[in-house]
């Protein structure tokens, strides 16, 4: 067992920067602009801002409060915390989402993270020193991913960087949070300042290839109110808010479970959210999407975004760096810092999984890490090899838009109905270094309605075509359609199997806990006895 005391955060700023570091990652610079472009730029911003107020802020406070309660109960993972709070046999099974969501996301997140390391290398060797637009960056991106005429994508260079990424992640995971805490404190502010510098450069230059930056910003912010009638945009925007803030998957809960019982959660949680949103809305919202519009035009930008999740940043930023003096070095540094921000986020995503196996199954950190590494590599194989036909995109859609929303919905219902609003509100306000507006007590009730409404509306309009594979993008060539369908089904089946595996792990942990209690001759009741006692 690791020394939990040694893992306690060294300071308030440390935990905020670590949580912000886990939140500022590939999501802000890569996923957010791509999702916004997919749904028409400015139109995406309205549901995004609504979701931020109705779900983002309340859920941040809920998860920080939940995590601190969990630490007091001696639990550091979602199944354990739900088990403690519900005191019902089914409680821990609801917490499966706190294992499943991070695992599904970490698999493809690690791959995307490795792309940023690959682009660091590409930039350093001068691949970005050209001035042309779409053809080169698209070719470079596809070439890096090994996407060509063949069915299987085999990225030779990409595999090297993927292995380096895996090695670094699992090395840091084994060393404990102290390393992340220290590292994030220095790396994130540098990354933010660098991005601010880039943004200032864009505003001072004002025009690229004869197109004004204001035209790009106009697309990124001009809403088309008619498009808001499509629930898909609301689902995607809510999923993006949850994903970027690492909500609905237990990562924040695991981090904050190491707080002391009188530590502030209200101001700390809100600060991590505001830093993350500042980076996402202001920096990434200026650097990537508007520039893609300038370089490629709206139609090509939307088509690219629909083809590959996380892709736009890899298309636009090389062109920006290509126009700067010493752009190869600056590009290498920027992508390297982006890689490090992704690294902190991916390690934080693995923490809930590790915490579960350590706390509930009493595995050692080394054993958990090695098993997690082997399973991740096995799952990464189809993600890498079937990239051309959207294995990764299918995982990303279900993990972010469905699993995270359901996870957040379950959390809010348990927070309000089981923990109780009075106790929950006390959890948010105890030790608070700010006055929490009372209106949020009512917004906390709106959060589950918003989440359930979005999910139900989307299911009503889009679930059937999605499940029957009749909504595949029209840009897919007819010859590729059968492959795309097979890969989509394979991706869903794999995700289903892993959900089953996680449920079995929880059942195994419960059986193990009962066996240990019997060994120690403790009068621990069975799940059924607990439930009958409570009822």
């Amino acid at each position: 067992m690791i020394n939990r005391k040694a893992e306690r955060w060294t300071g308030r700023l440390g935990v905020i920067l670590a949580v912000a570091g886990s939140a500022i990652g590939l999501s802000s610079f890569l996923r957010f602009p791509t999702e916004a472009a997919r749904y028409g730029g400015g139109t995406f911003m309205i549901p995004y801002l609504c979701a931020l107020i109705c779900c983002g802020i309340p859920l941040v406070w809920m998860e920080w409060a939940f995590g601190r309660y969990g630490g007091i109960w001696g639990r550091h993972n979602l199944p354990g915390i739900f088990d403690a709070v519900t005191r019902r046999p089914w409680g821990k099974y609801l917490g499966v989402l706190g294992l499943y969501a991070p695992f599904i996301i970490i698999v493809y997140y690690l791959y995307v993270e490795s792309w940023t390391l690959g682009y660091t290398f590409y930039s350093a060797i001068g691949k970005f020193t050209y001035k042309s637009a779409l053809p080169d960056t698209t070719y470079l991106f596809n070439h890096y991913l090994g996407i060509g005429g063949q069915v299987i994508s085999l990225p030779i260079i990409g595999l090297v960087f993927l292995l380096i990424t895996l090695a670094l992640n699992f090395y840091i995971l084994n060393r404990g949070e102290a390393g992340i805490d220290k590292f994030t404190t220095y790396a994130m502010p540098v990354f933010c300042l660098f991005s601010v510098g880039l943004m200032v450069y864009l505003f001072l230059t004002r025009s690229f290839h004869g197109v004004s930056i204001w035209r790009g910003l106009d697309y990124a912010w001009k809403p088309d109110l008619h498009a808001l009638a499509d629930p898909a945009i609301w689902l995607s925007a809510t999923g993006q808010v949850l994903f970027t803030l690492s909500l609905g998957l237990g990562a924040v809960i695991t981090y904050t479970s190491f707080l002391r019982k009188d530590d502030d959660v209200a101001l700390s949680g809100l600060t991590s959210l505001s830093i993350n949103e500042l980076v996402e809305i202001v920096l990434a919202g200026t650097l990537v999407l508007p520039m893609a519009i300038i370089f490629f035009g709206p139609h090509a930008t939307t088509a690219t975004a629909q083809q590959h999740a996380f892709s736009l940043g890899f298309m636009t930023l090389p062109i920006i760096f290509g126009q700067l003096p010493h752009g190869d070095l600056l590009g290498a540094l920027w992508f390297l810092l982006l890689f490090f921000s992704g690294l902190t986020a991916s390690v934080s995503l693995m923490k809930p999984i590790v915490a579960f196996f350590e706390d509930e199954l009493h595995w050692t950190r080394a054993k958990t890490s090695w098993i997690l590494l082997v399973v991740t590599i096995a799952y990464l194989a189809p993600v890498v090899l079937l990239q051309k036909y959207g294995f990764l995109d299918e995982m990303d859609f279900w993990a972010v838009n469905i699993v995270l929303l359901v996870g957040a919905l379950v959390e809010t219902v348990i927070f309000i109905a089981v923990l109780g609003m009075a106790r929950g509100w006390e959890g948010i306000t105890t030790g608070a270094r700010m006055h929490v507006p009372v209106i949020f007590k009512y917004i906390l009730y709106i959060t589950p309605i918003f989440l359930l409404g979005t999910l139900a509306w989307w299911a009503w309009m889009h679930a059937l075509p999605k499940l029957m594979l009749t909504d595949l993008p029209a840009t897919i060539a007819k010859a590729d359609l059968p492959y795309r369908m097979i890969v989509t089904i394979a991706s869903r089946v794999t995700m289903g199997l892993f959900l089953l595996l996680m449920l079995l792990a929880i059942r195994f942990a419960a059986a193990r806990a009962r066996a240990r209690a019997t060994e120690l001759s403790l009068p621990t009741p069975t799940d059924e006895e607990v439930s009958s006692d409570v009822s």
């Binding site: 400015g42 912010w221 001009k222 600060t271 505001s274």
Partner: peptide
């Protein structure tokens, strides 16, 4: 830029800058 885009962008940027400054100010206060 169109008027709608300017309004939406101004609201979002102002709100997020104000929130961040408020948080950092409160955090620094003893």
């Amino acid at each position: 830029m169109s008027r709608e885009a300017i309004i939406l962008m101004s609201i979002a940027w102002t709100a997020i800058f104000a929130l961040t400054l408020f948080c950092l100010w409160r955090l620094e206060r003893k």
